[in-house]
């Protein structure tokens, strides 16, 4: 009976916490969106960043691991599905590499390097929401065997350069979200995306999901470099 009593006590505490979390989650969803904290954006020092918001990490066997960066993950929000090319497929730098799905939005990322796909992250296929939250560890997407790495790396940023670049990207995204810099797109779009920004322009996690198709298309072109 003692064993049953202890087991029931533990299960009771877990169930109580689940109820508390469910009530809190419901309240939080009703009250506000999660605000983006810029101090959370991180740049691993050993990682190369492509302007299309993908990262490249060189493995000890010469292959490279590729994923989308923390900035892209945060503005897109929870990634619910990933479409990854199969092993053996050849990719070129700047060509479409993989697609992520968040809510009813689909965004394609371009390949940061030329190479052949030799590995894919099964964790991202099985549980993308959780895996993608650690953008530079469990959130990697695929492994490539590079064919033109030296030339490919020239367009990428690393360490302090990557920090500076990401700061500039955050500023650019804020301007985009506020609709301040969209005259070149069109007035209607400026109105639509400016409207989504809350709290006087503070960015919130997953705010891209609340933008309309035109704004998302613009984001894909201007930030992810996907012209297709």
């Amino acid at each position: 009976m003692v064993a049953i009593m202890v087991a029931i006590t533990i299960v009771g505490f877990v169930v109580l916490d689940l109820v508390i979390q469910a009530v809190r989650g419901k309240r939080a969803r009703q009250e506000q969106q999660v605000r983006l904290d810029f101090s959370d954006f991180r740049v691993p020092v050993n990682t190369f960043f492509h302007p299309g918001h993908t990262w490249v990490s060189i493995l000890s066997n010469g292959e490279v691991r590729v994923g989308l960066d923390d900035f892209a993950r945060k503005v897109i929000g929870d990634i619910e599905a990933v479409e990854i090319p199969g092993r053996g497929k050849t990719l070129k730098q700047g060509e479409k590499a993989f697609t992520v799905k968040a809510g009813n939005k689909k965004l394609s990322f371009i390949s940061p390097v030329d190479g052949e796909v030799t590995g894919i992250n099964n964790l991202m296929l099985a549980n993308p929401v959780q895996a993608a939250r650690s953008a530079y560890s469990s959130g990697w997407i695929l492994i490539l065997k590079p064919t033109n790495l030296a030339a490919n790396l020239k367009v990428m940023k690393i360490a302090e350069d990557a920090v500076e670049w990401l700061r500039a990207e955050i500023r650019r995204f804020r301007e985009f979200a506020l609709g301040e810099n969209l005259h070149s797109v069109n007035d209607e779009l400026q109105y639509e995306v400016g409207r989504t920004s809350q709290d006087g322009g503070c960015l919130t996690e997953g705010m891209l999901g609340r933008m309309d198709e035109k704004a998302v298309k613009y984001f894909e072109e201007a930030f992810l470099g996907n012209k297709a």
Binding site: F38, F41, R42, V43, P44, V45, I170
Partner: peptide, 8 residues
């Protein structure tokens, strides 16, 4: 391993 992007 990581350099945080400072708060801007």
């Amino acid at each position: 391993e990581e350099t945080p992007v400072e708060i801007i």
